[in-house]
Nucleic acid binder design. Structure first.
Lengths: 233, 233
DNA sequence: CAAGCCCATTGATACGACGTATTCAAGACC
DNA sequence: GGTCTTGAATACGTCGTATCAATGGGCTTG
């Protein structure tokens, strides 16, 4: 994982979090703090801090006399970036990717429509720059550099929408795009049609064509979902 | 507030959380655990548990030799239900309501489109039931009962979409609808056009007309946004 | 057999001590 | 004079123990 030396409590979280979100503990399973303290060779204080965080993510509840109870998946705070990362690293990664892609398909077109009305000149320039960067890196095994531009492009759209809820999904989109590149089509050059769409989106935003920007991004997300359907049954 | 007797740590959270999200502490402000322990008249252990939760919400970071630093608003986990509740109860409630309504306008139509393809017969029945309930309570100062049906209707749509990310927004929508009723139009009967739209959505889902369901819900959310523009400048 | 009381269990809180990373500044060296 | 090193102060991090409180199950009793 990534977090290791940030304190003992982080280490406990990085073990329990993925385990719970991976479904290793069935809903209703009770964990006792003493037992956890012994298992991780830390004090109960550390365990309690970790449990409090898991509780705030609604992965568990802590009740007196009962113990720390694992909650069913419907209760989880699935928008918590930490939870998203844990689940993407775990077993039901495919379902998670699918859920997030559907979410993208709902959010990003609307965000693009808003961005076309609200983007600053600097943000328009940024969009164009990254769209052109995608074009430049779209051929000949430069997927890593392509990905950087792709992520930056979508991040800019979301930020330019002027809506903080949209803006905060930038990390999620980055995670989805990264995951797609890493797993599914590492050796395939990106779809040229998608690249072209990005360029046209940048242009639509620049000329403040809200409906066209929205429609174009909708095409992009539809393509992304179709791609997912082909690659992951 | 609501949480009081759930432990001392909850009391600390219910004071610090709203204070931070309300902007009472500028980003960069440092709080010391000893100072907080004295202020709340609890032990440092309790403070540390609360701080850990605030840290997982990205409201603060805790660094050695520095203290507990308040993070800028862009870092906050704005999808955390707790954070949403705190902000809705605080000063920038109007902006928060606007952000969430925009979010709804992106999510719900797509969710309705999916629901039309995936809803179970039971869910279809539920939709119809609540739509009719809205009709029955739409006149004559029955806003409280109307609200119950309205919330249940949108919750069902989100759940029937089959997407867990959508389903988890049910609480947010409930909060928005409740807030709107409580603050803005407590004494005005609901817009009859909106009521009719809900009935038609239920029907569209029942006959599996995906595009019509999506379009109708889009009309509903557009109406909600227009209403917000009129009532809260 | 049922209803209510008692107690063991387990988390919740507190407190004091020590560990440790981090920062800031003083001082030495180039 | 400027830069690097080093050390001390500081505030969070961790730990162990003690005590409190709530809860669920078992026991008692009518």
């Amino acid at each position: 994982m990534e977090n290791q030396g940030q304190g003992l409590h982080a280490r406990v979280l990085d073990t329990l979090g993925p385990a719970i979100t991976a479904g290793e503990y069935a809903a209703g399973t009770v964990l006792r703090t003493d037992e956890l303290a012994e298992r991780f060779d830390v004090s109960r204080t550390v365990i309690r801090e970790a449990v409090r965080v898991l509780e705030s993510m609604r992965l568990v509840t802590s009740r007196r006399r009962v113990g720390v109870t694992v909650l069913p998946a419907e209760e989880w705070n699935v928008y918590d970036p930490q939870v998203i990362r844990w689940r993407l690293a775990g077993a039901d990664r495919p379902r998670q990717l699918r859920s997030l892609t559907v979410l993208r398909s709902a959010i990003e077109p609307v965000a693009a429509g808003l961005a076309a009305r609200l983007a600053t000149p600097a943000q328009c320039a940024e969009l164009t720059e990254h769209a052109l960067g995608m074009v430049a890196t779209s051929r000949g095994q430069q997927l890593a550099r392509y990905l950087v531009h792709d992520i930056a492009f979508h991040r800019t759209i979301l930020r330019a929408s002027g809506n903080e809820m949209f803006a905060r999904l930038g990390d999620v989109v980055a995670e989805v795009l990264t995951g797609r590149t890493e797993h599914d089509l590492m050796f395939t050059d990106p779809d040229p049609a998608a690249v072209t769409l990005h360029v046209r989106v940048a242009e639509a935003v620049r000329v403040r064509d809200s409906v066209r920007a929205e429609a174009l991004v909708r095409e992009i997300t539809v393509g992304a979902m179709a791609e997912l359907d082909v690659l992951a049954p």
